[in-house]
């Protein structure tokens, strides 16, 4: 009888074991590995920065082809508020970030609930905190990369090409403001995904719930735009006639909360580069303290839900 060429009997592992701490990074790596294997992730991630591409192309062609006034000043560039361009691209990317968050985060805990994966995680030297922080960090880091890479590349492009049009002198702290703005949606979506995901046993149900919240709140803010236009007597009317509560409620959505905070961080009300004066009204930046508090409350609330729902063992109440 042929004998096996390898010894297949059980042998104990006597190699090194790392100290039983910091398991969150192992959890985060595994979530990120699974996320980047999805084709849809790459499609939406590449779509998320299309506005930066358009802006870069517009600036390049205007710089190369448009007439320049004597003295080297291009009238198009002279009007530009640079940080508004970052705000525009940030606002447009929000929908894509939300879709990516759904793709990678909706099932983060729900799918584990379905397959009892918590028993695997928590029977190893991995605490509930490691588990939740690892999951959160994975979603956060991916979204930060998707927001941050194009933003910082565009910043470098502006720095190298348009410094003489006030790219830096308009706001010397722009780089630091961008660094603060970039993680805002990532932290929010990571927290929301975990909180909502922990309530379900199916990733699809968690995704549908988050999508419901997202689109209902978006619909609400669109209604506020209509009210703004009516209050202004048309899109070219007087913005000061819009009641401040309507301007505040304009930000009462998942996207709005983040766009509002971005305006606070960048210290701008924003403006549209390509739509001109006939474009939709631009509500002023909201109250910074109020929105920071609301943002932290929302993130904290979602994380508290996740903390409550994730349990190492089922609890039988007598």
């Amino acid at each position: 009888m042929a004998s096996p060429i390898a010894d297949l009997s059980y042998r104990s592992y006597d190699g090194p074991l790392l100290p039983p701490t910091m398991r969150w990074w192992v959890v985060a790596k595994s979530v990120m590995r699974l996320a980047i294997r999805k084709k849809g992730f790459w499609v939406w991630a590449n779509l998320s920065y299309y506005w930066f591409i358009i802006l870069a192309a517009v600036f390049y062609f205007v710089d190369v082809l448009a007439p320049t006034l004597p003295g080297g000043a291009n009238p198009f560039f002279s009007r530009i508020v640079w940080k508004d361009q970052f705000l525009d691209a940030f606002s447009i990317a929000q929908m894509f970030l939300f879709i990516i968050a759904l793709l990678i985060g909706a099932g983060a805990i729900a799918n584990d609930n379905r397959s009892n994966a918590l028993l695997v995680y928590l029977s190893k030297p991995c605490s509930k905190l490691d588990y939740l922080f690892g999951k959160w960090m994975a979603i956060f880091l991916i979204l930060v990369a998707i927001t941050g890479v194009p933003t910082l590349l565009f910043f470098v492009y502006g720095l190298l090409s348009y410094r003489h049009y006030g790219f830096i002198s308009q706001d010397p702290a722009l780089f630091w403001r961008l660094l603060v703005m970039i993680p805002v949606p990532a932290a929010f979506h990571a927290s929301a995904c975990l909180g909502i995901s922990s309530l379900f046993n199916q990733g699809r149900m968690a995704g549908a719930t988050y999508a419901g919240i997202y689109f209902l709140s978006l619909f609400f803010t669109k209604a506020m735009v209509v009210i703004q236009i009516i209050a202004m007597d048309g899109p070219r009317g007087d913005p000061s006639r819009v009641p401040s509560i309507v301007n505040t409620l304009f930000y009462a959505s998942v996207d709005g909360l983040q766009i509002g905070l971005a305006k606070v961080i960048l210290q701008t009300d924003g403006g549209h580069l390509l739509s001109g004066p006939g474009g939709p009204p631009v509500p002023p930046a909201p109250n910074g303290w109020l929105f920071t508090a609301l943002y932290l409350l929302a993130c904290g609330g979602f994380l508290a839900i996740a903390w409550q729902r994730v349990r190492a063992v089922e609890v039988v109440r007598g």
Binding site: S30, G107, N111, R114, N116, A117, L118, L119, V120, S123
Partner: peptide, 12 residues
């Protein structure tokens, strides 16, 4: 630990 219930990590 080999738990009583089926358990695995989805997608792996």
């Amino acid at each position: 630990l080999m738990p009583e219930q089926d358990c695995h990590i989805p997608g792996m």
